[in-house]
């Protein structure tokens, strides 16, 4: 795998956790109940911590002196490599937790594979992150089941969230040249290979949640290649990057 490809691969991992971490942190202080507010903030913190490891390594691989902070705060939309799913707005609490579940399930399977990576640095970051993600998945699964199989109103909202977000799931499993290079080098798994496992597990959870996965296989794409993000990412970055843009180099 060329350093350029590896850099892109690491940006994908780090941008997923960065964008979802920031999105989740938007709930801080506004959660539906105190315990959920704290849980959301803790999840965001774990994801930002993982971002520091992924983007820190990405900067080293790139060898142009960019730190994790530089990569997070000083790139524009077209340089982000996260999947479209994680940049989608929070919506209501149910929609946020549906997005979290759909991502956590992939994240958990992905990290389990990355622990076997031929790149020792990737393997050790995956080992660390996977303990945290297992915990996220446990919580988001319980919440999706609880709200899906809850009151008529919570069920209606969770089905609406699944209908809205499911078309963004497919992108996680569509391989491209960079994925192929990672597979060839033993660095990462074939995304399509994880897809079948994901679907089985998602079916099982949605059955318990009494929710129906949409039958239309259409998938939005363009996030992980950077070809076409949704309009939401730019708005999110405007807020996330504001301080470094307005006061370049500010520290405390």
């Amino acid at each position: 795998m060329t350093p350029q490809d590896l850099f892109q691969y690491l940006l994908r991992l780090g941008d997923n956790t960065l964008v979802l971490g920031h999105r989740t942190s938007e709930w801080c202080g506004t959660g539906p109940v105190l315990e959920e507010d704290i849980a959301l903030a803790n999840t965001a913190l774990d994801l930002i911590g993982q971002t520091q490891m992924w983007l820190g390594y990405a900067g080293e691989v790139e060898s142009e002196g960019r730190s994790a902070d530089d990569l997070a705060m000083l790139r524009d939309v077209w340089d982000f490599r996260n999947v479209l799913l994680v940049e989608q707005p929070n919506g209501d609490f149910g929609q946020t937790m549906m997005r979290q579940f759909l991502f956590d399930l992939w994240h958990d399977l992905m990290l389990a594979n990355l622990q076997k990576s031929a790149d020792p640095r990737i393997a050790e970051i995956a080992e660390k992150a996977s303990k945290e993600v297992r915990y996220h998945l446990e919580r988001s699964t319980d919440t999706v089941v609880g709200l899906g199989d809850g009151s008529p109103e919570s069920h209606r909202r969770m089905q609406a969230a699944l209908n809205l977000l499911w078309p963004y799931v497919g992108e996680l499993f569509v391989p491209d040249d960079i994925d192929a290079a990672a597979v060839a080098a033993g660095i990462g798994p074939d995304p399509a290979g994880i897809g079948a496992q994901y679907r089985n597990l998602a079916d099982e959870v949605m059955a318990r949640a009494t929710l129906a996965i949409p039958s239309d296989p259409f998938a939005h794409k363009g996030g992980k290649s950077g070809f076409r993000h949704t309009e939401h990412l730019g708005h999110m970055l405007t807020e996330m990057q504001w301080l470094q843009r307005a006061y370049p180099g500010a520290t405390w």
Partner: peptide
């Protein structure tokens, strides 16, 4: 259990 998460990343309530 009240919550899987608590006041610091290492604690639950």
């Amino acid at each position: 259990r009240i919550s899987q998460f608590g006041s610091t990343p290492c604690k639950a309530q």
